[in-house]
Design a protein around this nucleic acid. Structure first.
Length: 615
DNA sequence: CAGCAGGGGGCGA
DNA sequence: CGCCCCCTGCTGG
């Protein structure tokens, strides 16, 4: 709070912007308040006019011209992947794209006139004025500042070592973040070209390679043209000269600082104007040391303390669906478990993920839009930050968690606080003594158990192996499944026990459905209202409410019902059936609930539990 | 108490 | 996966 000269008090919400982004991500994830639907390649993407019109002149104009409250916009010439990426870009202010997808993405962005990608945007707050007032910090605030860079900023640019893993990276400032962005085609040369140091220009990383430029000459070319050492990103030439080596070392130091609490390994990566920029747009304390991580907590705390409303994408999924929008048809967790169950991807993806993490670290430090060129799904930085916020997480812990953590198994999905995640996996082995239950009930070898769980996960591709326990009737060992064999996962002699509650079933499909209660996943969305269901059949029943369909007719009267069970209840009026009889007064009731209400009035019910539910 | 709607488990294909 | 079923909670008469 700042007391102004006029006597007015200026109340500033420090984390207003980050909170907005966070809430926006949640709203998008939950598909709340959706007032427009984008149809693309057979998929439907609920969205918000406000966001779309904010980020796209195309949509802005479109919405101005239509009076429809909830238009469905069919995008014919845009790929679903590109649209999902653009939606992520618009909602999150950043997106990761594969290098080979960049050209089509830019093309799509141009079609839709996406600000910051295809259309120049300007800073609505006109921070250049602030810059004049605070020249020392101005360069940290927006991308334009890069154009009029200070020597320090230029130096930063010089210090962009190329990672040693062959990953190509690029950063493009976003209009959606604090930073004011220019379209890629314009901004890249500006932001990357120091005004006073030609040498540094040559040393700058060129994240977009020449072949990329060839693939997408229009949008990408300008991106790459500043990077006349464009291959450096992919070819790892951090030590081209002493300057680069020095820059690399400094970047490493920077990253190590950044990674101290992230629990991830530090590796030379591109470091943008990390400590020149703060996430929430606060002016950087320029005199401060190069500890971007000190700036980050504001961001991380705000972004990851969301509890239930946490954006699932914040939680370390390694599949692309974590990073891009998820249409209603998405089947989350699938890829995760595929990787996990298959096992083969595990190590590889883990290391790749870590690379991605590092990349994201640098990006978030700089707070631009990120175009990731490493060709691998990237976990979000937030996963790292979130994990890192947990006490005593080692690098291996983080790596392991990130490598297999599926969306369906994220803390917020499980209804637990994020910082419980560390113990969650442990809890899985301990919870409700289910592991010991396994031994008691099944006495199957643990390796066989894990093998079968892996198989179940492999073929059902839904649940992480540690989410359930299998009990074997008579100690029957699991049947080995040959590669390529198919199985419904419903194998005889097995009881699948949920490790998060007391539920057990002999049918793995039931477990899969059941587990959605823990993940709070409701993958079946009603197209007519906000209703979502965990089971498709429930959605089907729900849809009858909209269609008015009542397929179940009473044979005694005109009554019709949308649900058979309701007809059955109704029919009791005609048949006089009263299945629930009070054992005390012998009064009969048609429903258990009615009986129960009645029964609870009897003083004797304390001594005699309900004969129908034992409560 | 009846109607309605939603949640969730069982089970056959 | 789709269908069936049961159960439950809410609402209004």
């Amino acid at each position: 709070m700042v007391k102004m000269s006029s006597g007015l008090l200026s109340l500033k919400w420090n984390h207003h912007r980050s909170t907005f982004l966070h809430v926006l991500a949640n709203i998008r994830r939950k598909e709340s308040y959706s007032d427009v639907t984008l149809a693309c390649a057979g998929k439907f993407y609920p969205a918000h006019k406000l966001v779309l019109s904010t980020c796209s002149e195309y949509f802005e104009e479109m919405f101005e011209r239509t009076q429809c409250k909830h238009p469905v916009i069919v995008l014919k010439d845009i790929g679903a992947d590109d649209l999902e990426a653009l939606l992520s870009y618009m909602y999150d202010g950043e997106v990761n794209v594969l290098q080979e997808n960049l050209s089509s993405l830019i093309k799509a962005a141009e079609c839709l006139k996406i600000k910051g990608l295809a259309v120049a945007d300007s800073d609505p707050t006109d921070r250049t004025k602030e810059k004049k007032l605070h020249p020392s910090s101005g360069s940290s605030i927006n991308a334009n500042s890069n154009i009029n860079n200070s020597n320090r900023d230029v130096h930063r640019n010089e210090k962009r070592p190329v990672n040693g893993s062959g990953i190509k990276r690029t950063n493009v400032n976003s209009s959606f973040s604090e930073d004011v962005a220019q379209p890629i085609k314009r901004r890249r040369p500006d932001s990357r070209t120091p005004l006073n140091t030609s040498a540094s220009s040559e040393e700058q990383e060129a994240p977009v390679t020449s072949n990329e430029s060839a693939a997408a000459p229009e949008p990408a070319s300008p991106v790459g043209e500043d990077g006349n050492n464009g291959g450096s990103g992919g070819e790892s030439q951090p030590g081209d000269d002493a300057k680069s080596a020095e820059a690399s070392e400094e970047a490493n130091n920077f990253l190590q600082d950044l990674n101290v609490d992230a629990g991830v390994k530090a590796e030379p990566v591109e470091v943008l104007d990390a400590d020149d920029l703060t996430f929430d747009g606060r002016e950087d304390e320029d005199a401060g040391p190069d500890h971007p991580g000190e700036d980050l907590p504001d961001f991380t705390e705000e972004k990851f303390s969301g509890g239930e409303g946490e954006d699932p994408s914040l939680w370390g999924g390694t599949d692309e669906t974590d990073l891009f929008s998820q249409p209603s048809t998405s089947n989350f967790g699938e890829d995760d478990v595929k990787k996990d169950a298959a096992g083969g991807d595990k190590s590889g993806n883990t290391s790749s993920s870590m690379d991605g993490i590092e990349m994201r670290l640098s990006c978030v430090a700089a707070c631009p839009v990120t175009l990731c060129m490493d060709g691998l799904p990237q976990p979000s930085l937030s996963s790292v930050r979130s994990l890192s916020s947990m006490a005593n997480l080692t690098h291996e812990d983080t790596e392991t968690a990130l490598s297999w953590l599926p969306k369906s198994y994220k803390p917020e999905a499980l209804g637990v606080e994020p910082n419980v995640l560390q113990s969650r996996t442990t809890k899985l082995d301990q919870d409700a003594n289910l592991s010991s239950t396994l031994n008691v009930r099944g006495s199957a070898p643990s390796d066989e158990d894990s093998n079968h769980k892996a198989l179940a996960g492999r073929y059902l591709q839904e649940l992480p192996p540690d989410s359930f326990t299998i009990a074997y009737v008579d100690g029957q060992p699991p049947e080995p499944l040959a590669d390529g064999a198919t199985s419904s996962g419903n194998l005889k002699g097995r009881t699948y026990m949920c490790n998060l509650c007391e539920y057990s079933t002999t049918l793995f499909g039931n477990l899969k459905t059941h587990f959605r209660q823990h993940t709070k996943e409701k993958p079946f969305a009603c197209s007519m209202c906000d209703y979502r269901a965990r089971q498709q059949s429930n959605l089907k029943t729900h849809m009858r409410k909209h269609t008015g369909e009542k397929p179940y007719a009473c044979e005694f009267c005109p009554y019709r019902s949308s649900q058979h069970s309701n007809l059955k209840i109704h029919r009791m009026q005609h048949t006089g059936e009263r299945p629930f009889a009070c054992p005390i007064c012998l009064k009969k009731f048609s429903r258990h609930g009615y009986f129960h209400s009645h029964y609870s009035l009897h003083p004797e019910h304390f001594q005699r539990p309900c004969p129908y539910c034992s409560t």
